[in-house]
Computed example of a mutant assay.
Amino acid sequence: MEAPDFSADLYREITEFAEGTPSWLHTVAEVGTDAGLLLFAALFVVGWWRARIGDARAMALALAAPFAVVAAYLVSEVSKTFIEEERPCRAVQGAVHIAACPAPGDWSFPSNHATIAAASAAVIVVAWRAMAPLVLPMAALMAFSRVFVGVHYPHDVAAGFVLGVVVAPLVVVALVVALRPLVESMRGFPLCGTVLGPPSAAAGGAPESGAERPVMPGAGPGRAAGGGSAGRVNEASVTMPDVMGGVTRRDPLP
Rank of each mutant, 00 (worst) to 15 (best):
M1A: 12
E2C: 01
S7G: 12
L10R: 14
Y11L: 06
T15Q: 06
P22S: 09
S23A: 13
H26I: 01
A35P: 06
A42P: 08
L43I: 13
V45L: 15
R50K: 14
R57G: 03
M59C: 03
P66Y: 04
A68L: 02
K80D: 09
E84S: 07
E85S: 08
R87H: 04
A99E: 14
A103R: 15
A103H: 11
G105V: 08
A114P: 06
I116C: 09
A117V: 13
A117F: 15
A118Q: 12
A121H: 07
W128K: 03
A130T: 12
M131F: 10
V135P: 01
V135W: 04
P137K: 01
L141C: 15
M142A: 10
F148Q: 04
F148S: 06
Y153A: 08
A159F: 01
V162H: 08
L163P: 00
V166L: 15
P169G: 00
V171N: 00
V173C: 12
V173F: 13
V176H: 01
V177S: 08
V183G: 01
E184Y: 09
S185N: 06
F189S: 06
F189A: 14
C192L: 15
T194R: 15
S200C: 05
S200D: 15
A201T: 08
G205I: 04
E212A: 01
V215R: 14
M216C: 14
M216R: 15
P221R: 07
R223V: 07
A225Y: 08
G227Y: 09
G228D: 11
S229K: 12
R232Y: 12
V233M: 04
N234C: 11
M244C: 11
R249N: 08
R250N: 09
D251P: 05
